[in-house]
Structures are given as C-alpha cells and as structure tokens.
Design a protein around this nucleic acid. Structure first.
Lengths: 239, 239
DNA sequence: ACATTTCGAGAGCACTGCTCTCGCTTGAGA
DNA sequence: TCTCAAGCGAGAGCAGTGCTCTCGAAATGT
C-alpha cells in the first residue's frame, strides 16, 4: 500500500527523493557545512520556498541524510559480512571493521555527518536508532556466534564495573557474559576512533600504510573482545 | 621585544585577544557552526569590517581558536600528569587519559572543533602541529619512561607492518621499539574514539556509568601498549 | 612638519534560512 | 458530476551572514 494512492502522492515521494539525492550530492561534494537549501532547490529547478513543502527546515533535511548515511554504512557492513558469513569469527570481525573503514573513506562527508561533530539541534529523534545500531549489532552478532561456538575468551572486569556491565549486557546481548559485552562496547568506540582519525586526517604525517595499520589494530580489538585467531601464532591479518 | 613598541602595537594585541575571547565565548555557548564574525564584532562594540583588520576571514579566526583549544587540552593533560609524575607508569597513563576526557566533557564545543568534523578549508597550517601533538607526546613520554625503567611488555607485530612501524618509530620515538610505537599510535586514536563517543552522545542509552567504563577501557589501552599494572591481579583502575 | 601606514566606520554585494501571500492544480466528498 | 478544501509552486520579502571597498581620522616613522 505504499504504491501511490494517486498521482499526487507519487509525485510527492518522487520529489522528496529528488531533493534528498541533490542534497546528498552537495553533501558529498562540499560537506554538511556548505549544504544549502537554496542550492538544492536551484539544482532541481524549483524555488527555495517550495522545498519547505517537503522538509520543514534545513536541519530536517540533514536529519534525513543522517538516517540514510547510517543505513548506507550498515548496509555496506552487512553486505561485506554476508560474504564471509561462515569464515573464522575473527576474520568476520576484521571484515566488518574494514568495511566500515572503506565506506568511511569513500564517503568522508557522510561519515563526518554521523560520527563527527553533531549538528547543533542534535537530538537524535529515536527514528535514527535502528539505522544507527546496525554496525554495532553486526559486531555483537559476530561475537555471539563465536561465544556459542568454539572459541571465545572471557575478558576480566574490575569489580566496580560489573554492575554496569550487567546492565549493558541486559540491554544489548543478554546471552553474552557482561565482561564480553563491556569489551565489545569499548571496541566499538575504539573502532570508530581509528576510522575517525584516518578520515579526519589526524594520521597525516604519522601513519603511512594506513590499511595495514588498521588491520592490525582491528585484530587487536578482536582479541580484546575475546575472539581468538585460528593460526595461533601472533595474531595477524586474520586471513 | 614583545612588549609594545607603541600604543598602537599594544592596542593591536589587546584587541586581537578580545576578539578571540569573545569568539571563544560564542564557541563555547553555541558551537562552531553558529560562531558569527558579526556577532563578535557586535559584542565588542565595533563594526564587522573592523574585525577583518585582525583576522582575514572567519575561518582564520576559527583556526586561531583551534590552536588555542589544542593548547588548552595539552596544558590540562600536562598539568594532570605533573601531579603524578612519579607514580606507577600505568597510573600516569590513566591520569593523562582521564584528564583528556575531563577537559573534553568540560569544553565539548572546543573538543568538537579539534577532534570532530574538520572545518572545510581544513589544511592544518603547520603552526598547529606542536600544539596538536602535546597529548600524544605526553603519552609517548609515559611509555618511554616505563620502557627505560622496570616494566613494559613488548607487543607483537605481524611482518607486514614492521616496516611501517619502524618508520613511525623513527619519526616519533627512535628510542622505543617499533612494536611499542605502533601500539601507542593505535591506543592514541582509540583513546579519542572513547572520548568522542562520549562527548558526541553515542553512549547515550548504552553506557551509563561512563567514568568507570572509561577508566577500565583506558586501563586496557595501557595494557595494549605494554604498561603493566603494579598489583598484578586483573588490571583494574590503576589506583 | 610631512608622508605613510594603520585603523574604524559605513555602504554595499551576494548569499543564506525562513515566512507569508497569492494563485493554480489536484483529489476526495456531496 | 460538481464543489471546495487541501496541496503545491512562484514570488516577494525579512533578517542575518561573510566579505569587499572606500573614505576620513589617528598614530607612526622620517
């Protein structure tokens, strides 16, 4: 029942999509700061006030792009993971992380939109939560599979954090030990720390072979959440 | 020869400082996006065009604030470290990291300015490098002391990364083993991943006791760079 | 004392987000 | 089938922005 109850309704979703597309193009080209509602209107041959029939404000347009960006990233990660769904767990972990990095480098401005400085009126309006969670859920799923399968080590946890870890586990993955969930959340944040530093240029003049560096760092993150590498030796690329 | 060769020169540095102060106030209050050159001019009772005598563009004003923010953060970290300069190395590491977090939470907009989305014309103009490096240098110093002292473990490194690690070590800390330097750089990025997620609100609804969580994660980072905790037992808060 | 530079003020340009009004078109109910 | 409200695009307009240019006045160096 999505399919157009009338020409008008159909036109509306088409125009809405066209606006988002033009906006996304501008975003990719110039960054969120320079995204101008009037410019997208111009590109579509309409007048600026007409755009307001579709998005009540510039920030609402941006919010729509945020959700799309989360989904685009989540989709990329999920697709990459699907291709190795029955490989070694540590390898799957690495593939997901590398998909995140690859997507971020290919869409730096969209990445900045979701993991950079939040927009001023930044209350993530609930509707973004599912899209925003996709990568995290993937990482959780990989560790869950490992936990219910052969090899996962149980990290240790100081006493003062065990209550909080239990809370997190109850929310995120009740079937995993709290220690693992806590390590997972930390690894999640640290993964995006690595990606952000690279995308935002903090590695410029510091790290040269960033891909190899990233693979290694991500392997250590996997180790931190308890994933063990197949070929025991020094944890390598997970290949 | 800094001290005013004339009333004019003195006035100039005073006005420059006043502009930066007003700008910093606006930045702290509303964020970089809403920082308006005309508004700071208004606050100082001057006309907008006059401000251009001191800063050639709005982005140049922002750049000046960026350098200041790096310095402010670096100073906070150094001060915190100085107070525990002869404590256990892992503890010193933790104190520096917590100082970074505390400063970031106290100055979210300034933090966003330096570790969030880079400004469009984002070529860090060399002059920012020393200020930007202060925290990293502190972390390196802590590990260096540990390495030249009693306890530091040597991380392992896959073959494919050893050349790059040697390169980094040559640039950053020739007296440390390449494996340690590589781990240090990763920990550096991961630290800011943790801080950014908290400041930018990605932990909202996920992590509740963020301070305890951070201490724990930072302890693991210390472990990752080879710092060993005094009381052997499970690595705890570093107390 | 003169010439030069430095500075603040003001006007102005091109642009932005956003509001409001005006007609035209569409579509659903009488 | 006709009607009337809702949806929509165009246009004008407001307040604000970054930035440029010109013009006098003040401070400076010779």
């Amino acid at each position: 029942m999505n399919t157009a109850r009338g020409a008008r309704a159909r036109a509306r979703i088409e125009v809405t999509a066209a606006i988002k597309d033009a906006a996304r193009r501008q975003l990719a080209a110039e960054g969120a700061a320079k995204l101008s509602l009037r410019a997208v209107a111009r590109e579509l041959g309409m007048v600026s006030s007409a755009v307001y029939r579709y998005f009540p404000s510039r920030d609402d347009l941006l919010t729509a792009l945020i959700v799309d960006a989360y989904d685009s990233l989540g989709e990329a990660a999920e697709a990459a993971h699907a291709e190795v769904a029955d490989a070694e767990h540590a390898h799957r972990w690495g593939v997901v992380c590398e998909a995140v990095r690859t997507w971020a480098l290919a869409h730096p401005h969209e990445y900045a939109l979701i993991y950079g400085t939040p927009v001023p009126g930044y209350t993530a309006p609930k509707s973004t939560v599912p899209a925003a969670s996709r990568v995290a859920l993937l990482l959780i799923a990989v560790v869950r599979d490992a936990y219910h399968g052969p090899g996962v080590a149980r990290p240790t946890l100081p006493a003062e954090l065990q209550a909080e870890a239990r809370r997190m586990a109850a929310d995120l993955a009740p079937d995993l030990p709290p220690e693992t969930v806590a390590a997972l959340v930390a690894a999640w944040a640290q993964l995006f720390g690595l990606v952000s530093f690279e995308v935002f240029g903090h590695f410029r003049g510091v790290v040269e072979d960033r891909e190899a560096f990233f693979r290694h760092a991500v392997g250590n993150l996997a180790h931190g959440v308890g994933l063990v590498y197949p070929k025991s030796a020094g944890r390598g690329t997970g290949r």
